[in-house]
Amino acid sequence: MIESKEDELRERFTALRREDAAGLPPFSKTVAAARGRRAAPGRGRLLVLATAAALVVAALVFVFRGHDRPHMTIDLAAVRLHAPTDFLLKLPGADLLRTVPRLGRVGLDRRTL
């Protein structure tokens, strides 16, 4: 039983081998193509070279354009932050709270009495 099962598998693989052999490329053509690969750079090598060249160009463009750009300096000490909710802190008569009253000048004018 086991033997027959194994024979069946072997037969199936033999059929597969026969079908594969029908599309077998000639040996001379395969060897010639292999020798041709030695002379010509492969597709992968070209792809890597093209990618490396593109990266170098991108890096150069980034470096040189970066120098041409005018610089804008920011004085951090002069910066005032205005939050969007600042208006909530504005009260009527708020300027009275920010100034100190001058007590010496306050008095009654006798002429108006």
């Binding site: 599309g23 490329p25 395969t30 060897v31 193509a33 292999a34 020798r35 690969r37 030695r38």
Partner: peptide
Amino acid sequence: DRAAAEDTLQASYLKALD
């Protein structure tokens, strides 16, 4: 994959011949 197999075989022959 027939194309990949041919590619593999060529690369293997090249390794052997070199």
